[in-house]
């Protein structure tokens, strides 16, 4: 039918529409390529001839050169290789703790916003309580405490860091999802589904939640930037991922101790955190524009 109309535009799927609008934001396009390169480099880290943990004390404190792109640290370990492997840890901690915090946030926010009443009151009081936590202090305390617990899985510092960052950052997505649900539950399409006999769980998961996907993705990028900075910060202070596993934060931490002998050592790990966080922030900006129907792009 529509193809027979002279001026009809080709019908575009939602995904393609969003993608087209996203890549209109040029910096977001660049950011996603940068992030893709970083992820790929971390995955392909074993192709690098140097091991991240092999020590060659003879070669310690080399400045960046052709063999060791980012130089070597105090134990003669290749910093480039450590950063590639560290990227695996930092990026996956960022991603997994974001998935955790967004999932909990969606659950809490959807229940509070959809059902309202005392469910809302109780859940929001708990959310408020978590929001007044002096987060970094509690994270350090947890990081120190959990490592002293007897259970074997708690010896895995990567897992601990993912769990504690996720457990202390679900409040922002929860508040966001709640506010979206408060608006959407009053819409006609929800009333129509309810009239047709749709159950609460169906309305929540199939009808309201898909309409929240844009803001949730945007808050996911904020969350991930926060998680990566926090993980690195914790590891930097010595209460995140434990050695010998390298992460960008722990590499930076050893660099701090050598600041007089090798002032360049801290440059690259910090730069990686900075570039990654910046790329994620720009992707968030692009997603915000892509999902916002009111943004008009200048056609350049």
């Amino acid at each position: 039918m529509s193809s027979s109309l002279p001026n009809a535009r080709r019908v575009e799927g939602m995904g393609r529409l969003i993608a087209r609008r996203f890549f209109k934001h040029r910096l977001a396009g660049i950011a996603i390529s940068v992030l893709a390169i970083l992820v790929l480099a971390s995955i392909l880290a074993p192709l690098n001839p140097y091991s991240p943990t092999d020590q060659e004390p003879v070669n310690s404190f080399q400045k960046p050169n052709v063999a060791h792109f980012f130089g070597t640290d105090e134990l003669g370990r290749d910093v480039f290789s450590r950063i590639l492997y560290g990227g695996r840890v930092s990026l996956s901690v960022g991603l997994l703790s974001t998935v955790l915090s967004i999932s909990v946030g969606i659950l809490v926010g959807a229940l509070a916003g959809y059902f309202g009443g005392w469910t809302d009151s109780v859940l929001m009081r708990i959310t408020d309580a978590f929001l007044t936590f002096p987060t970094i202090f509690v994270l350090i305390l947890l990081g120190a405490l959990l490592r002293e617990q007897p259970l074997p899985w708690m010896k895995n510092s990567v897992l601990i860091v993912i769990l504690i960052i996720g457990a202390l950052s679900w409040m922002w997505p929860a508040r966001l999802v709640r506010s979206l649900f408060l608006v959407l539950r009053e819409k006609e399409f929800v009333a129509a589904t309810r009239a047709l006999g749709g159950s609460d769980s169906r309305i929540i998961t199939r009808h309201i939640l898909p309409n929240c996907i844009g803001p949730i993705l945007v808050s996911g990028t904020l969350q991930m930037a926060y998680a990566i900075i926090t993980e690195s910060g914790l590891s930097y202070l010595g209460f995140g991922v434990q050695p010998p596993t390298p992460t960008w934060g722990s590499i930076l931490s050893t660099a701090q101790n050598q600041v007089f002998r090798a002032p360049w050592l801290g440059f690259f790990p910090g730069l990686m955190i900075f570039i990654t966080v910046m790329a994620i922030n720009y992707i968030g900006d692009g997603l915000r524009d892509a999902f916002d129907p009111y943004v008009i792009h200048s056609e350049k």
């Binding site: 690195s232 910060g233 930076l252 801290g266 955190i273 900075f274 966080v277």
Partner: peptide, 10 residues
């Protein structure tokens, strides 16, 4: 996007 600890070290 600059982590405060990197800025401080810098």
């Amino acid at each position: 996007s600059i982590p405060v600890y990197w800025l401080g070290l810098g």
